[in-house]
Design a protein around this nucleic acid. Structure first.
Lengths: 219, 219
DNA sequence: GCTTGACAACTTACACTGTAAGGTTCATTT
DNA sequence: AAATGAACCTTACAGTGTAAGTTGTCAAGC
């Protein structure tokens, strides 16, 4: 057993950071649904309840993981043109979120109320404001961009590339016969197609942002 | 107790449709995470295991619920211009998904491999093909549009409007002081702002689709 | 009317979950 | 050396999905 090896760990050496690191590992190994405090404890070589000394609940642990991920997003400074800043910001979010694919679905759905997350949120909305979008457009365009990001990351980390989750599966022959458009489109989906599709939608959104910005500033 | 009332139900009267109806109700009442086979059984006035006679597992039941929702999406027929068809199709998806808000997060993340879902998928991708987009653009634009839809629905059904999910919450005063851009943007979020933000992003995507279509067909 | 068979529903049981409550051990300070 | 308090462990409980076995009920055939 691997656990017997880990059991060598002596007392008094647990820390929030160690627990977080192990949590990311266990989540990737077992999947988000397969994760549990007991499995995490086994990976750490301790008992489940010991973790509660460092995190009051599983929810608090998850929040710490989200905070760590969100904090890792790098926003370009004000010297860069607004369009580039927003593009890089969005690519950064995707990069960070897909770093731990199994955890990504949790991150994108998470309601970010913690100070570290709010700080990042604030700086991203500030990107739009600094770009010359008014308060309303800044808010709504940020939201629309987030929507796109959420879906893209979910598809990449929890979508078809992860195999069928549906209970009833359809054979390839039946797919080709009954659902030809799905079959054809399938060639552009999956692992290889993510980057290109993501960039396509990203540029579409940026183009429209630019158009909206120019038309409102002109009038 | 309500359960005592329901207990009047006689044997041999359970059906898949009854179970699905009750499941939607229980999910809305208890939330997706709070849903369980035992609670569903209580609502039906039967024991948990009786449900397994009609659905082999909870996953099968969930799939049936998804199938029912997806099948309710109405796609405009070929007489309508492509742009209108795609717009209405997307609005339809949103309408259906938000009909059972607590279940929506499950629907949007679901990998739709069942025949009813594949059929709908096929007809939607067909919308792009019929609109004059080539196979690759049809595939990628469908995906990009789906990304946006997923995020929009998740925000509406599981986002900030549902209250803070984070464990640590920040007071309004602190929000106004430390995160002014979030504060300002907040005015456009929430229940009242969903429609307008959704429509804004939707038209942005449709505009870009039109541009892409014209430029590829011209060259 | 009685029996039989089949199926729908119930009962029990198991392995798992998060975590409350309380007991133990160990490093540090006095 | 004694005490203090943090760090960790043990036990227990109420909940989960569901496998396996049992009971109740109703319709068809005699």
């Amino acid at each position: 057993m691997d656990s017997s090896i880990k059991k060598k760990r002596v007392r008094g050496r647990l820390s929030r950071e160690m627990i977080e690191d192990a949590a990311f590992q266990v989540i990737e190994r077992e999947g988000l649904a397969g994760f549990s405090m007991r499995k995490l404890a086994a990976a750490l070589g301790c008992e489940a309840m010991s973790i509660y000394h460092h995190f009051p609940s599983q929810a608090h642990l998850y929040e710490a993981l989200v905070d760590r991920q969100i904090s890792a997003i790098v926003i370009p400074d004000a010297g860069v043109p607004w369009r580039e800043r927003i593009r890089i910001g969005m690519q950064e979010y995707r990069r960070v979120a897909t770093e731990h694919p199994a955890f990504a679905p949790f991150v994108v759905v998470y309601r970010m109320n913690s100070p570290p997350c709010l700080a990042k949120l604030d700086s991203v909305i500030g990107l739009f404001e600094a770009g010359g979008f008014g308060p309303e457009l800044s808010a709504r365009l940020f939201r629309a961009a987030s929507y796109y990001l959420m879906g893209a990351i979910l598809d990449e980390t929890a979508g078809y590339a992860k195999g069928p989750s549906a209970v009833t599966t359809v054979s390839d022959e039946q797919l080709a016969r009954d659902f030809p458009s799905v079959m054809t489109a399938g060639a552009y989906f999956g692992r290889a197609g993510f980057d290109k599709t993501f960039e396509l939608g990203l540029e579409m959104l940026l183009d429209e942002m630019e158009r909206l910005r120019d038309s409102t500033n002109a009038s």
